[in-house]
């Protein structure tokens, strides 16, 4: 659940975070654009963004990892 994954083939429309940023569950990490829709890819866990694999304009495929979140310690 720490990977933020593209649910569909799309282009990256907006990147909302930078590495090191804190995010909570359901925060949008990246907004994808597909078929004229803006579709947020949200954080599945609360934590810190440890990796960001895409930039605005990147083309992504279904299932590809957009970012990784290091979860808060339990």
């Amino acid at each position: 659940m720490t990977d933020v994954v593209a649910e569909m083939t799309a282009t990256v429309f907006r990147v909302h975070v930078a590495v090191g940023d804190r995010v909570s569950v359901d925060d949008p990490v990246v907004t994808l654009e597909s078929m004229k829709m803006e579709i947020p890819a949200v954080a599945g866990v609360s934590g810190t963004v440890s990796r960001l694999d895409v930039a605005e304009g990147s083309a992504v495929e279904e299932g590809s990892v957009l970012a990784v979140i290091e979860p808060d310690p339990a």
Binding site: E7, M8, S34, M35, K36, M37, I39, P40, V42
Partner: peptide
């Protein structure tokens, strides 16, 4: 589910 795409795969 619009969060999972816009068209019927």
């Amino acid at each position: 589910d619009p969060y999972k795409g816009a068209t019927m795969t």
